[in-house]
Write a protein that binds this DNA or RNA. Structure first.
Lengths: 142, 142
DNA sequence: CTTGAACCTCTAGTCACTGTAGGTCCTATC
DNA sequence: GATAGGACCTACAGTGACTAGAGGTTCAAG
């Protein structure tokens, strides 16, 4: 029987985050001691590892919730899990592409900056003048 | 004199976002009509363009706030603006690196998945089994 | 003068946590 | 058995950067 602190350490999660996962129904309500403290077993450790690993791969909690349902019903087809992962891959690739554009523009900004006065600072100039911008009106997704 | 809607269109911003920027002090309180509607001039258009462009480059609103102060005081050195941009570049590069690791692992997951039952789905397996993971315990920054 | 699109304020919701206050429990040591 | 203190508890507020909705008002064209 593990305390919440031990579970936290074993999975690289904060204690508050585990409680948060419980309130949103991602983790089950665990057993409690007579004094009301949470006690966890192997099943919960596995489930939390799954969740954390999914988060590390950039899956949203909603996607992880879907994947957990699939994992809990091992007789169904795995096409759903595959398509969730495909979706995730696409998102990751989009983000990389956009970040690479930013990287380029930031590098250009910085290398052109001659450290003189703000009056002729490339960094501020580029921000001021839209025409120098490589990017279009897309938003940066968090 | 521009209405908030026109300003929104010209800068690719939502109306609510402009009002939000006002509440957090990033945009000034503009003139109002007798009826209480906001009216903007060129200065506000420029300022908002600067903010939006900064956001597109992935700067946080706090970083943009700093940059605006610099832009408003053109006699100072531009080293500060440069170092803010450097900081941003580093963050962007870190994010790219981490995303590329994810990309690799997701690809591996997906290509190994043979679309049979969930019982032997690689996607779920990889999530279940930490030892197959390329990444360490780092968090995904939003 | 009427219509209706665009504006207004205020509040709550999003995502995925994180932090704090104020109190209780568990366990090891004396 | 008493005590100390670290880990636990709940409940609530805050983060960043918006977004959405309700319910009401203003503006400009016809």
């Amino acid at each position: 029987m593990l305390t919440i602190g031990t579970l936290a350490k074993r999975t690289g999660t904060k204690v508050q985050t585990i409680r948060y996962y419980e309130t949103i129904g991602l983790m089950p309500e665990p057993e409690r001691t007579r004094g009301g403290q949470r006690r966890y077993g192997q099943a919960e450790l596995d489930r939390l590892s799954f969740v954390r690993h999914g988060r590390q791969l950039g899956f949203s909690l909603e996607a992880i919730r879907e994947l957990l349902v699939l994992a809990d019903n091992p007789s169904q087809s795995c096409v759903d899990a595959d398509s969730i992962a495909q979706r995730q891959l696409k998102q990751v690739e989009d983000r990389i592409a956009r970040l690479q554009v930013l990287q380029l523009e930031l590098k250009r900004m910085i290398s052109d900056c001659t450290h003189h006065s703000v009056a002729d600072c490339r960094v501020l100039e580029v921000l001021r003048d839209h025409s120098e911008c490589l990017t279009d009106h897309d938003q940066i997704g968090a």
